[in-house]
Design a protein around this nucleic acid. Structure first.
Lengths: 89, 89
DNA sequence: GGAACATTTAGATATCTGTCAAAATATCGA
DNA sequence: TCGATATTTTGACAGATATCTAAATGTTCC
């Protein structure tokens, strides 16, 4: 994967993992995502920035909103990394 | 998996991931593992404790030494977790 | 252009994390 | 039992991280 460190770091936070599970259902705006958590929008924005940096999500401005969606490509790379470890001798 | 948080936290550190890759080759004592890194044995011991807590490794005392080895079972659970996200709709 | 809305950025702060040196624990061999 | 070796635990500290409030940016609609 492009940068293992940023990916694993991104996955290490429970809020960010919850965001990923949300986006599994459907694409959402930053505001919709924030509505699911008991933290400020600023905080969610920060988490989204880290997920974006790790390439786990992509964002696209749609008028007033910014829509986030999963980038499953990177998940495949994490899977490959882990499988290399778990693979029987 | 038993506790997703401890597993992902454990995977978030580059030294700990390197330790896992080392153990993929063969089981090693704490000392052998420490010899591969430019940090103190105390620090490696700390990393090993986190990996153990996450169930990613198991340890077994063999006389003077403590031998560490991978516990691939947990990797399967991480894989399943990620696959659930990456799976196409 | 200006008000209203959506989101991010900046600055501050408390907590978490990785690291070290030193002390403690455990095992072996003489 | 004593001394040597292997590893962990403790206590401290610098740097990273999650969070907040407030300010800044970008977009739409009138």
């Amino acid at each position: 994967m492009s940068n293992p460190q940023s990916v694993f770091k991104a996955l290490a936070d429970p809020t960010r993992r919850a965001i990923l599970r949300l986006l599994r259902e459907r694409d959402m705006t930053a505001g919709e995502i924030a509505a699911h958590f008991p933290v400020t929008r600023a905080s969610i924005s920060h988490h989204l920035a880290l997920l974006k940096q790790a390439n786990l999500v992509v964002d696209e401005r749609r008028g007033q909103h910014i829509v986030y969606s999963l980038n499953t490509t990177v998940f495949q790379e994490v899977l490959a990394w882990l499988m290399e470890l778990a693979r029987p001798e």
